[in-house]
Structure formats: C-alpha cells, structure tokens
C-alpha cells in the first residue's frame, strides 16, 4: 500500500515534469495576485466614491464574481465563450477568470479595510491640505491594509490553491503535470508528490496567517 502511494522511483522520474508544472503554477500566482490586488484596489477606491452611480456597478461586480463558482467561471470562459466566437485559449481563459474572481475578493477585503479606518483620519489629513488621493495613499490605505492583513494573506493563500483549477482547461500547471504523470505511470505517486509540493509551498503562508490572526485577536 505504502509502496503504491510512495513509489520513490516513479516520484523521481516524475519530479522534473512536476517542477515544470510548479513553474507554471508560480507564474500564474505571480500574475494573478498582483493583478487581482491592483484590480481590487481600484474596486475598493471607487467604492468609497460619493456617487451612487459609481458605487452600485461595483457592488454588482463584486457580488457577482464572488457568488460565481470559480471552476464554473473558468469552464464558461474556456468552453462557453467560443460559441460566441470568442476563443481565448487556456492561458488567457485562466488569467481572465482568476482576475475576475480574485479582484472581487481583494476588492471586498480592501473596501472593508478602508471603511475600518476612522473618518477623522481622512479629515485630519485633508485639513492640512492633502488631496484626497494623497490622504488615501499616505494615511488611510496603510492603516486599511494593516487592519485586513490576515484576510489579504488568507485570500492570497486561496488564490495559490485556486490555480490548480487551471488543470481542467489543460493548462500544464502542477496538478495537471501530476495527473499526466499519474496516467502515464498508472500510479498515484505523482499526485502525492504534487500534494507534498503544494504543502511545502503553502505551509509557511499558513503559519504566517495563523500568527497574523493571533496578533489581530490579541490586539483587540
């Protein structure tokens, strides 16, 4: 039994292939996280607008994509949109699908962060002549990010795990590589190896998150 799941020879043979998959996974994370954060920041900043006509489309955007199961979204973009003549290919589908999902989550987190900062902070900054943008950048956002740091790290962790969904559209990331190796070798060891790699990769962030959450609770 142990032999079946931990076949070291197969693992060794599959490793280079899995590392290639890991590279694609990291690339995806490195693309989706900054883009999602940037999109989320824009959503959050616009959400503080006084104009209702600016705010409500964002509420719709955030709610819609947070309620949309990411796997369904991904398959829709990859396999559904071609029927409308829009053929995006695996990588673009994944990038767009994850951006829509991720930016709405980050947007909601950052919006909550901005709202958690006392109104007097913005007023004090504006009373010294700072523009709204300057007050946001130097006074409100640093505090907002600090207040929701555990949620930001937690969401980033979710994004990293989310990338494994890209395997369903045959993007050769870590899980897809492991699945291929498994079907070639008729052995589950590559999947186990992939799981180990995910764990080694993500565990430090899980620890970090734990500590942040602990600190936040203790700080209350």
């Amino acid at each position: 039994m142990l032999q079946t799941f931990f076949d070291l020879d197969i693992m060794r043979a599959a490793l280079p292939y899995l590392l290639q998959g890991l590279w694609t996974t990291l690339l995806l994370v490195a693309l989706v996280v900054p883009l999602g954060l940037a999109g989320g920041l824009i959503v959050a900043l616009l959400s503080t607008s006084r104009r209702r006509s600016v705010r409500w489309p964002l509420v719709v955007y955030v709610d819609f994509f947070r309620a949309f199961p990411p796997l369904v979204l991904l398959i829709f973009i990859y396999a559904g949109l071609p029927f409308a003549g829009l053929e995006l290919g695996a990588f673009a589908s994944v990038a767009i699908g994850f951006f829509l999902n991720t930016s709405s989550y980050y947007g909601e987190i950052l919006r909550a962060g901005i709202e958690s900062v006392a109104r007097g902070q913005m007023e004090a900054a504006r009373s010294t002549g700072l523009t709204k943008a300057q007050a946001m950048a130097w006074v409100v956002l640093p505090q907002a990010v600090r207040n929701v740091l555990p949620d930001l790290v937690g969401n980033t962790l979710e994004v990293a795990k989310l990338t494994s969904l890209a395997s369903v559209v045959a993007l050769p990331e870590l899980l897809f590589a492991a699945r291929s190796a498994q079907s070639l070798t008729f052995n589950p060891s590559p999947i186990v190896l992939a799981a180990l790699i995910y764990f080694v990769l993500l565990w430090p962030f899980v620890r970090l998150l734990s500590r942040l959450e602990h600190r936040t609770l203790a700080g209350r």
Binding site: Q121, E123, A124, G129, V139
Partner: peptide, 15 residues
C-alpha cells in the same frame, strides 16, 4: 486648508 490649522477633539493622529 493648509493655512487654517484644525485641532480635533479626538486628536486624529496617524497611528
């Protein structure tokens, strides 16, 4: 605004 100083009840220092 930069020529009218304002001091608030709750200080509003940047923490």
């Amino acid at each position: 605004r930069r020529r009218i100083g304002m001091v608030f009840q709750s200080f509003n220092l940047y923490p």
